[in-house]
Amino acid sequence: MKNGWTNFLLGYIRVVLNGRGTERFVNECIRNGIPVWKVKRTKEEELSLFVRLKDVHALRPIARKNDCKCHFKERRGIPFLMRKTGRNLGFAIGFVLFLAVLFLLSNMVWSIEIQGAKPETEHLIKKELTRIGVKEGSIQFLIPDADDIQKSLSDRIKAITWVGVKLNGTSYHLKVVEKNEPDKTEYASPGNIVAAKKAVITRMFVSHGKPLVTVNDHVQKGQLLVSGVIGTEKNSKIIASKALVFGETWYKSSVEVPLRTNFNVFSGNNNVKHYITIGSFQLPIWGFNQKEFSSQEKEEDQRYVKFLNWSLPVGYLKETIREKEAVKRLYTPSEARQAGLRIGKSDVLQKIGENGQIIGEKVLHQTNENGKVKMIILYQVIENIAKSTPIVQGD
């Protein structure tokens, strides 16, 4: 019989027939649409066969008609298992509760291990993990995935450079790389301070060393600004120079801004679908009657049910579909010029650091060709030009 699973769900019975009309019994069952299978002759005038549970009541009239007797030997399938379970209801309920608790415990977070972090950084990490719901006793299905945890920690804790998040069974393992900020021992060895680039000195703060230039002096790249040799010619001493020397310098920036730009952005509309997955089969359980977007991007979050240390092929899938739309940005030449100035300014500020400042800008050249505004911009800035160099014997 090919429908083995169906028969098991509905129940089936092994029947033993005795009598002279056993063959006629089988033939009449087939004529009446009663399936029989695994028909075997066990003795003379005795047959063994299987029938469905729902066809049992139709057998006795056929047996009497064909001078046979039916004996029901084996009962198989879900209905008989349920009947046996009913006799041992307490045991069955206990067994089901045991499995439920075991599944629940297998899908909880039991420990969080953090490696490579200082105690104060580890405290900040645990505090952030608790904020996003990752803590001992949490259900794994209800907390963010490893990528989201990693992004949250990297964005909110400035003391770490990188963090790796891995889930092993019921434990989260985090490996942390902290930012190395060595003690600031400026100019630990004897040294001079020279100009890092051509500039006009605007202000100086010398704490150690002998200044050799003054405010408003024009200096060239590599020129000595503060000497590490102090004292008289006969009684000199070599030290590590320390100073901040700010100078007026210039940066030239080339910027191109297209007047027309096409790009894709998310509209903010999204569909969320939920599935129960069994192997490659997906059973929709929520959100499957939503309209489709003409342009979209799909994001999947797959979680698998765990039993002890095994990952079962049964799980939960959350599918987020975000709508994308094409946007055209049009600039007038005047608007493109302003955008170019902002781009160039941002680029220069990254180069001069947080202590630098822009005090002036001038567009040296501007053209409008091939749908683009091209500019060459000169920026006047104030920045620290001090650069430490060691004092070599003989200097």
Rank of each mutant, 00 (worst) to 15 (best):
residue 188 A to T: 08
residue 179 K to W: 10
residue 200 V to G: 03
residue 208 H to W: 09
residue 202 T to A: 05
residue 182 P to F: 09
residue 211 P to V: 07
residue 222 G to H: 08
residue 220 Q to C: 05
residue 176 V to S: 03
residue 188 A to K: 10
residue 181 E to Q: 10
residue 164 G to D: 12
residue 162 W to C: 01
residue 164 G to L: 02
residue 212 L to Y: 04
residue 206 V to T: 01
residue 208 H to T: 08
residue 216 N to I: 00
residue 172 Y to N: 12
residue 204 M to F: 04
residue 187 Y to P: 05
residue 214 T to N: 02
residue 224 L to D: 02
residue 197 K to M: 13
residue 178 E to S: 02
residue 189 S to L: 13
residue 187 Y to G: 11
residue 188 A to M: 11
residue 161 T to E: 14
residue 178 E to Q: 12
residue 195 A to S: 11
residue 210 K to L: 09
residue 222 G to P: 04
residue 173 H to V: 15
residue 217 D to F: 01
residue 227 S to P: 04
residue 198 K to A: 12
residue 212 L to G: 01
residue 223 Q to F: 05
residue 193 I to T: 09
residue 210 K to H: 04
residue 165 V to L: 09
residue 204 M to H: 02
residue 216 N to V: 02
residue 194 V to E: 00
residue 193 I to G: 07
residue 177 V to E: 14
residue 197 K to D: 11
residue 214 T to E: 13
residue 188 A to V: 03
residue 223 Q to R: 02
residue 184 K to R: 12
residue 206 V to A: 03
residue 209 G to Y: 01
residue 205 F to C: 00
residue 192 N to Y: 12
residue 210 K to V: 06
residue 199 A to D: 08
residue 192 N to G: 00
residue 180 N to C: 10
residue 201 I to C: 07
residue 224 L to A: 04
residue 197 K to L: 06
residue 189 S to I: 14
residue 173 H to L: 15
residue 214 T to F: 02
residue 194 V to D: 05
residue 207 S to M: 04
residue 209 G to H: 04
residue 185 T to V: 11
residue 187 Y to A: 13
residue 219 V to H: 06
residue 190 P to M: 09
residue 162 W to F: 15
residue 204 M to V: 03
residue 206 V to R: 04
residue 222 G to M: 01
residue 166 K to R: 09
residue 185 T to W: 09
residue 208 H to I: 07
residue 185 T to P: 06
residue 165 V to T: 05
residue 204 M to I: 09
residue 163 V to T: 09
residue 225 L to F: 03
residue 186 E to H: 07
